[in-house]
């Protein structure tokens, strides 16, 4: 069963989502990766505000390929989330509620997610063409000088993702691996 979910995430939605759920997201996503994360956290450390109101929002870790003529964006699949781990707890303190990427998060991030009641979802890496078709609009909203790493605001419709870490302690990567692991693995 696929759940249709509206963005930004509400408290009710956050409580409903369970690790392993397949969801189709519609609404607004903000895109930021390595360089933008570094700059956002540096701004917060200096006591400055972020270029957009992050409270309740969802971040997508992604760096698209260039948009061909007539399209809002090029290929647009997730990048490895672990590279953002050292910046994530600070953004969760600032009110971030959802993250979309791929691959396992650190223990620190999982702890901070639990504390601040946020969820982590994965999109399918290497499915950038398919995901691109669910992005209706893309605009650079900050850090334009970072080029492919600038912050984007996306409007998405039926963006496919899977819940990895829910607010109840569920963890699909850990549970999935344990379920299918067999003894003879070296």
């Amino acid at each position: 069963m696929v759940k249709k979910v509206k963005l930004p995430l509400t408290e009710e939605t956050l409580a409903e989502l369970r690790a392993g759920d397949n969801v189709l997201l519609s609404g607004i996503l903000y895109v930021a990766r390595d360089a933008a994360h570094k700059r956002m956290v540096e701004a917060l450390e200096r006591g400055e505000s972020l270029p957009f109101d992050i409270k309740g929002q969802t971040l997508y870790y992604m760096g698209p390929s260039p948009a061909p003529p007539g399209r809002p964006i090029g290929s647009a699949g997730p990048t490895t989330s672990a590279r953002m781990d050292m910046y994530t707890p600070r953004l969760l303190v600032a009110g971030l509620k959802g993250m979309i990427g791929k691959g396992v998060r650190s223990a620190e991030v999982k702890g901070a997610m639990k504390k601040h009641q946020a969820v982590y979802l994965a999109a399918i890496g290497g499915a950038g063409a398919l995901i691109s078709k669910t992005i209706i609009k893309s605009e650079v909203i900050a850090y334009q000088d970072l080029g492919p790493e600038a912050i984007l605001r996306l409007e998405v419709k039926h963006f496919p993702a899977t819940v990895i870490n829910d607010i109840h302690g569920g963890d699909l990567y850990v549970e999935g691996k344990a379920k299918y692991r067999r003894k003879d693995n070296g």
């Binding site: 061909p68 290929s75 950038g128």
Partner: peptide
């Protein structure tokens, strides 16, 4: 869920070649 992932990967390959969008943004 593994089967669904592979279905999506195969569908992505169709979209990429038919519509001229790179298979992966990387």
């Amino acid at each position: 869920s593994g089967r669904e992932v592979i279905d999506t990967i195969l569908k992505n390959a169709d979209i990429a070649s038919n519509e001229g969008i790179p298979l992966c943004q990387d």
